[in-house]
């Protein structure tokens, strides 16, 4: 306590200082799943053992989430297509959504940008945007479903990811394609290979027939209509074909990793 007092600057309002310090702290509730006493009591009944500390409850929940990954991988049908919609049903305006404000969205200069390809691929040459634009493209009008519950129908045009993976000689027996992106704080996300090879999984260059705007992930996003929105990377910088589970921005915070639709 004495040491703490010494750290306080004379003449500075202590309560303001504390308020500033709290503001600088990361959201403490983020990683804490259990707060209420009621929930702990319920878990004791649920597991039949005495769960006193919340960390063991979290461990149990994480185990069930891993189990749910396996169940979803088992349920995943590589031929089941996400429903498509007429253009008249496109949501306007399509929402911008991220863990930062639009002002903080990456501003990437298309001419300087290149897509890095790493890992278990034969050809690791980086790709310029105009090279990627020359690849055959298809359009899809599908529903984007956010983990928060809302959804919106959008129109995305680009190259099927499986065609690109074939083109660069990717080892499609690998477990994941791991994307790294230009979002602040370093968004990244693993995509299981079977979903990466799904016919509707797309390297997207256009939204509503226009070059992908900054709000939706210029210069390239990965549109995955069989996953929740947070597993649709934007502002993609690199992709890595890998057998290692490298985690992801949201996955590491507790969102279910498979999160398939």
């Amino acid at each position: 306590m004495g040491r703490l007092r010494k750290l306080l600057i004379p003449g500075v309002d202590k309560s303001l200082l504390v308020r500033d310090a709290v503001k600088a702290m990361p959201d403490p509730t983020r990683r804490r799943f259990i707060t209420t006493g009621a929930s702990l009591g319920a878990l004791t009944l649920l597991s039949g053992c005495d769960v006193i500390d919340s960390s063991s409850a979290e461990e149990l929940l994480k185990k069930v989430s891993k189990f749910n990954d396996a169940v979803q991988a088992w349920m995943f049908n590589p031929d089941a297509l996400a429903p498509t919609f007429p253009e008249s049903m496109i949501t306007k305006p399509f929402p911008f959504n991220a863990y930062y404000d639009l002002d903080d969205a990456p501003e990437i200069a298309g001419a300087d940008w290149k897509l890095e390809v790493r890992g278990l691929v034969e050809n690791k040459k980086p790709w310029m945007l105009d090279e990627l634009y020359k690849l055959p493209q298809v359009k899809q009008v599908t529903r984007h479903i956010c983990v928060e519950g809302w959804s919106a129908i959008g129109s995305w045009t680009g190259t099927p990811l499986r065609d690109f993976l074939k083109l660069v000689g990717a080892d499609t027996r690998a477990k994941y394609v791991w994307f790294q992106c230009g979002d602040k704080d370093g968004y990244n996300s693993p995509l299981d290979m079977r979903t990466a090879l799904h016919p509707q999984t797309q390297m997207t260059f256009k939204f509503a027939d226009e070059i992908l705007p900054r709000a939706y992930g210029f210069p390239m996003k990965i549109r995955v209509p069989t996953k929740l929105g947070f597993k649709n990377p934007k502002y993609v910088l690199s992709m890595e074909v890998t057998n290692d589970y490298k985690g992801g921005y949201w996955e590491d915070q507790g969102y279910n990793s498979f999160s398939g639709s």
Binding site: D27, T29, R30, R32, F33, I34, T35, T36, A38, S39, L46, L60, L61, K62, V64, S65, N68, V147, E148, W250, Q253, G254, Y255, N256
Partner: peptide
């Protein structure tokens, strides 16, 4: 005060565990 999970990610973990 009457919800479980304290944030969306935690609540989803609870929801998709208790569903079983």
């Amino acid at each position: 005060s009457i919800t479980l999970g304290s944030w969306l990610g935690g609540a989803l973990l609870w929801h998709f565990a208790a569903m079983w």
